[in-house]
Amino acid sequence: MELDIKQIMERLPHRFPMLLVDRVIEMVPGKSIVAIKNVSMNEPFFAGHFPHHPVMPGVLIIEALAQAAALFSFEDNSVKPADKKMAYYLVGVDGARFRRPVVPGDQLRLEATADKISRSICRYNARATVDGQLVAEAKIMCAIRVLEE
């Protein structure tokens, strides 16, 4: 299963400058995902990180992985993070390692597999690569909260 940017925006509440997934190239609902983030010099964070040597912040790579994980975690569910009825929060990051800088022109391949998905907590094994080289990896945990109206 593949998703374009319009389909991603139907499923996630994030918008510029925080939407960090451009395309989904593989997805098995409830199990795994492979998504793409094209890193451009036009990203707003490069103005300050760093002006003479632009590097994508590691926390944003982790956020991109969490957004990708949200996409496959709710595909079989009628309620998705883009709905105003629920929120999907990144609540834990374990074992995060950053192997090399991500710079403008790189294409991040975001891979996440489910370790546990429940009604309230989801855990994933996640990794990001560029040109087949590992750039980041972590175990991430997200919480699902139903919002009061």
Rank of each mutant, 00 (worst) to 15 (best):
I25D: 13
P57V: 05
A87R: 04
N38V: 09
R97C: 03
K31Y: 06
G58M: 00
A47Q: 14
S32H: 14
K31C: 06
I61M: 12
R97W: 04
R23L: 14
P81N: 03
I62F: 01
L20W: 00
P44I: 09
D22P: 08
V21S: 05
Q67W: 01
S78E: 15
R23S: 11
H14S: 03
P44M: 03
N38R: 09
R100K: 15
V34M: 11
E43G: 08
Q67H: 07
Y88A: 00
F98R: 01
V79C: 03
F74I: 05
H52Y: 10
P29S: 12
I33N: 04
D94K: 13
Y89R: 02
K31R: 13
L19R: 08
G95H: 09
H52K: 14
I36F: 13
V59G: 08
F16W: 15
D76Q: 13
H14M: 06
F72I: 04
V59K: 08
D106W: 01
N42S: 11
K80N: 11
I25R: 13
D106M: 04
P51Q: 09
S32D: 14
I25L: 12
P44G: 07
N77I: 10
G48V: 06
G48E: 07
R23Q: 13
L71A: 00
A64D: 00
V93A: 04
V93D: 03
P104I: 04
F98S: 01
V79Q: 12
K85F: 04
S78H: 13
G95L: 08
D83H: 10
I33F: 11
F46H: 14
V24F: 12
A69S: 15
G30T: 07
P54E: 04
P51M: 11
M27L: 12
A70S: 12
L71V: 03
D22E: 13
H52E: 15
F46A: 13
K85A: 12
A66H: 04
M86H: 00
V39P: 00
V59S: 10
D83C: 07
V91E: 08
V79F: 08
P57A: 06
